[in-house]
């Protein structure tokens, strides 16, 4: 356990002494602020219209705009998923590829540390970097909490916000797992990042195939598509099935990384 934390700490410190951690954070802040303002504006527009016409006469599709949590935060989370998908490959790419290129992997494998501790330490460091990147976006719910208002007292449903963040972190951890595995396969960071991005993007379009597929494929595709899996969590419903699904993927990627790293010493 101590070795895992030592390695995780080193990974995190390298994220923040090289530009990557800062670039990730800055990209997240820039893109998310754009979406936050966009959703805030449309929320205000709908609210203004509703004040004149009354909610009863509004399009029922706009019902989610009745409160800040569903109208702004949940919509924003939907986009943060995509931003996380775009940033994670660049945070994950150096985990193993860089160690191999710099030949520091030789150090890690000749100190009295188990391979699984190296893999878990690196994974934990990577997830830490994702947490820090997503942490930037906490300002938006806080701003709404301070300046927002609603008919039922608290401006936001904090349980929904917390669950949404849980879902985002879970997704970030999944992206990091996939990225770490791919990083363990190559010496080139760029190749690792691009391959991870391709895999994650393919995963996002899988869900779009569902409507045109026949049963039982349709259910199967719905099941593996990450956005349908995350939908419940993101809208504030605790969905154990989704948690099990993503945790399984994380465990698999850690296991695969371990096998990949071990296998390279044998060739």
């Amino acid at each position: 356990m101590r070795n895992i934390l030592t390695i995780a700490r080193k990974e995190l410190s390298i994220y923040f002494t090289t530009p990557w951690g800062w670039i990730g954070g800055a990209a997240m802040a820039f893109i998310s602020s754009f979406f936050f303002i966009f959703f805030l504006n449309s929320f205000k527009e709908v609210q203004d219209k509703a004040k004149i016409k009354g909610w009863a006469n509004m399009d029922p599709d706009l019902a989610q705009m009745r409160n800040l949590t569903d109208g702004v935060i949940v919509n924003l989370f939907g986009w943060l998923l995509i931003v996380t998908l775009l940033i994670a490959p660049f945070l994950a790419m150096r985990l193993f590829a860089e160690e191999r290129r710099q030949k520091t992997i030789e150090l890690l494998f000749t100190v009295p540390v188990r391979t699984i501790e190296i893999v878990l330490g690196k994974y934990l460091g990577g997830v830490g970097a994702i947490c820090a990147t997503l942490g930037v976006t906490v300002v938006y719910p806080i701003i709404l909490g301070i300046f927002g208002a609603s008919q039922s007292g608290s401006a936001l449903e904090w349980s929904t916000v917390a669950l949404g963040y849980g879902a985002l972190l879970l997704w970030g951890a999944v992206c990091m797992g996939v990225g770490m595995f791919i990083s363990a396969l190559t010496e080139s960071q760029m190749l690792a990042a691009v391959l991870t991005l391709v895999v994650l993007l393919l995963w996002t379009v899988v869900g779009a195939l569902a409507p045109s597929a026949e049963e039982p494929w349709r259910s199967a595709i719905r099941y593996v598509a990450f956005d349908t899996q995350l939908q419940n969590l993101m809208s504030g419903v605790l969905d154990l099935k989704a948690i099990v699904f993503f945790v399984s993927i994380i465990l698999l990627s850690v296991l695969f990384t371990h096998r990949a790293v071990e296998a390279q010493r044998w060739t």
Binding site: K10, T17, K103, T104, E106
Partner: peptide, 17 residues
Amino acid sequence: KRRIGYLPETPPLYPEM
């Protein structure tokens, strides 16, 4: 491994540390 100190051919250094 606990009993070995090893200097590889390429010193295994992290330049950013």
